[in-house]
Write a protein that binds this DNA or RNA. Structure first.
Length: 704
DNA sequence: TTAGGGTTAG
């Protein structure tokens, strides 16, 4: 009858706990009233829902009489129940009173505790023979998901699908399930439900797809995000502004900058209903900045400054010029070594955007001053923040200031800032500690470093589970020659990873999660330990972030362990993860080194079939592999296909193809390609000319 | 009833 038996899956909690979930609003009549009043006055679908607020009960439209039932009394009785059996007993007292299904559903929808709502659902099934509606299921599902009871949630939806007759899950069911799964990093489960949803003929909507796209991005699974986007387009849904902006971010992360920029163009061309906004522009600006393409950022910013489109008036700045864009540009000027321009931009923020600089602007400016050696300005700004309304120094401010005192080699002042932040109630984090440790290390204060780290570990401060902090500790020890200490740290790390194998140990959250430990070991170049721990973590399903796979693949590749790199890569694909473009590049390289050309080719093809888009260099890499395989028909076929792709730079493609032939010692073909380039009006750069000349020279020498 | 986008520090 009931596919899930919560009593079996999840042992009953102690009575006090169960009561505690509902009791505060029930036991005290006063606060209980408040809670119900608040809920019942919610204006839902334009109708005021207050009919159950009356202690005497209200007649419902369905013809049942719920008036004999005092809602408060019923809820107090329920609050005293400690398990489903007792709940059933209480409810059966009321079942003779002909509670309407609507009443029951309403009761259920107000129940925030997942155990109790599940029990109510069970009761509706078993005792009253009320058939729970999709709505009822959705409410329970929401509660179960909020409690992160994943298995139970999946079971509930399976039950809906399989009960006879089925209670067909609807858009809300899937949307709730998928977004909760995704939010907690269970992207693959989320995607498998997306499939079931499609099987059930429930169409995904724009928000759902865009949630999944953004989740993929957060898990750094850009290829998957891109594939979802093309799926969205294929199903005829037109992206809106948020979806576009999400994708600009994704394309930027995947380094597909021309794609990112073309999305902005697409919005501009779309005829006005979707126009790029401040978020579109600053996303792209930020992506340029992150990839070190400061000049591109500058040129985009110039476009933004000169475009007045969408302005609200002559005196008003255009809406796409906002504080965030300026924040990014201060950072960009800083990286370009243009501190004076950054300074000018900072002080013009209010005039040009209408907004006052916030803490991020101050923090960025602070760092730019520090990096430019303008320490007087930095200290002045730091002091100014204290006196500026609406700007609160935060952990980033203090960390930046600590690092500035590190640059001036004033470790006592750096330490003083650390104390100052604690005095002001700002908790130092992993960045604060790794900054100060590195400063103390350089000042030779190893005792202080060791003492601090020991303190952090014993206090269970979450900052210790940070890969960079570990790396700082290790390199600090190594720099002063305490190699034994560094090794001990790594050994303990592995042991702590093992400690977490024990389910009980993971509850108290002590030690370092395996994913982190793998990253630390990999960064420290400890291939064997990292590999062993990684295998354990995978087998226990503890690897959720694709970046761990990526870390391992690049670790193996750096150490020339191409077979291992390929092994991890294939495991990653089996697990349903999409590798990012960098990883694909590394994997293709590894396949090439192993001379496994066919496997490389099928990866290249399959990923495109799955909707992936590659940056040019991946295509070029594939050309190179085909050349190395001496599959020249393949080279020509791919070349022809790539020539038809307008997003690929023709000149670069020609150069790469000529290089492929040159390496394969087919100089006639190399010349042919270069000749075709000249004929189609592509100017050949000096390096191309030298390639050409070399190919001519060696072809004449080989023929003589 | 559910739900999506941008910036700073080691």
């Amino acid at each position: 009858m009931f596919a899930i038996q919560p009593t079996i899956l999840f042992p009953k909690p102690p009575v006090t706990h169960l009561c505690g979930c509902v009791a505060p609003s029930i036991h005290s009549p006063r606060s209980g009233k408040d809670v119900w009043t608040r809920h019942n006055n919610n204006n839902i679908n334009g109708r005021r829902r207050h009919q159950f607020n009356d202690a005497s009960g209200v007649t419902t439209t369905s013809g049942y009489w719920d008036r004999n039932v005092d809602m408060d009394e019923l809820l107090s009785s329920l609050a005293g129940t400690s398990n489903e059996a007792e709940l059933h007993a209480v409810m059966s007292l009321y079942s003779g009173r002909q509670l309407s299904q609507r009443f029951m559903t309403s009761l259920l929808s107000r129940e925030p505790d997942w155990r109790r709502s599940l029990a109510l659902l069970d009761w509706m099934h078993a005792v009253a023979s009320y058939r729970p509606s999709v709505f009822a299921y959705n409410v329970v599902l929401r509660n179960v998901l909020r409690a992160r009871q994943w298995m139970l949630a999946a079971g509930l939806v399976d039950e809906m699908r399989s009960s006879s007759p089925p209670v067909a899950p609807d858009r809300f069911t899937y949307s709730t399930l998928i977004s909760h799964l995704g939010k907690s990093g269970r992207l693959d489960e989320a995607l498998s439900w997306l499939q079931k949803m499609e099987q059930d003929g429930v169409s995904g909507d724009l928000v759902l797809y865009s949630t999944l796209i953004d989740l993929s991005r957060k898990l750094r699974d850009y290829s998957k995000a891109i594939s979802l986007f093309s799926r969205l387009r294929r199903s005829g849904i037109r992206p809106d502004l948020v979806a576009y902006n999400s994708m600009i971010h994704v394309f930027g992360k995947a380094r597909l900058f021309s794609e990112a920029r073309s999305l902005i163009q697409e919005m501009l061309d779309s005829g006005g209903d979707v126009r790029p906004d401040a978020v579109s522009y600053s996303t792209l600006l930020g992506m340029y900045a992150e990839d070190g393409r400061y000049v591109d950022a500058l040129s985009l910013f110039n476009d933004m400054m000169s475009s007045t489109s969408g302005g609200r008036g002559n005196d008003q700045p255009p809406p796409h010029l906002d504080l965030t864009a300026f924040n990014i540009m201060i950072d960009v000027y800083g990286h370009l070594g243009m501190a004076r321009e950054a300074d000018r931009l900072f002080w013009s923020i209010q005039r040009r955007t209408g907004a006052r600089p916030g803490v991020v602007a101050y923090n960025t400016m602070l760092r730019v001053y520090g990096e430019a050696g303008l320490f007087g300005e930095a200290i002045h700004l730091f002091r100014l923040m204290e006196r500026t309304d609406g700007v609160q120094r935060n952990v980033v401010t203090y960390n930046t200031m600590i690092s500035i005192y590190g640059k001036t080699l004033e470790h006592e002042k750096a330490t003083a800032v650390l104390r100052e932040m604690q005095r002001h109630g700002v908790r130092p984090d992993a960045v604060s500690y790794s900054t100060i440790i590195s400063i103390w290390g350089k000042a030779g204060k190893i005792d202080r470093v060791a003492k601090l780290f020991q303190k952090l570990r014993t206090s269970g401060d979450p900052a210790v589970a940070d890969p960079v902090l570990y790396r700082t500790m290790i390199s600090t020890y190594e720099r002063v020659g305490l190699v034994g200490h560094a090794k001990r740290l790594l050994r303990e790390l592995v042991e702590e990873g093992r400690l977490l194998d024990d389910a009980a140990a993971s509850d108290d959250n002590s030690g370092v999660p395996k994913e982190t430990a793998v990253a630390i070991l990999a960064e420290a170049g400890r291939v064997e330990e990292a590999t062993a721990l990684f295998r354990r973590a995978v087998s226990m399903g503890e690897v959720k972030d694709v970046s761990v796979f990526r870390t391992m693949i690049s670790l193996h590749s750096r150490h020339g362990r191409h077979a291992n790199a390929v092994e991890v890569f294939e495991k990653m694909r089996e697990a349903g993860y999409f590798p990012d473009t960098n990883t694909i590049g590394v994997a293709l390289n590894a396949y090439g080194k192993m001379r496994a050309f066919d496997r490389a080719e099928s990866v290249y093809r399959e990923m495109q079939d799955e909707g992936c888009m590659f940056p040019d260099r991946i295509h070029f890499q594939m050309l190179g592999l085909l050349g190395a395989k001496r599959d020249f028909e393949g080279v020509e076929a791919l070349l022809e296909r790539l020539e038809g792709d307008p997003s690929i730079d023709r000149k670069e493609l020609g150069m790469v193809a000529a290089g492929v032939y040159e390496r394969a010692n087919r100089l006639d073909d190399a010349s042919r390609i270069l000749r075709q380039m000249c004929q189609s009006g592509i100017t050949i750069t000096p390096s191309a000319e030298s390639t050409w000349a070399r190919s001519q020279a060696s072809s004449s020498s080989s023929s003589s």
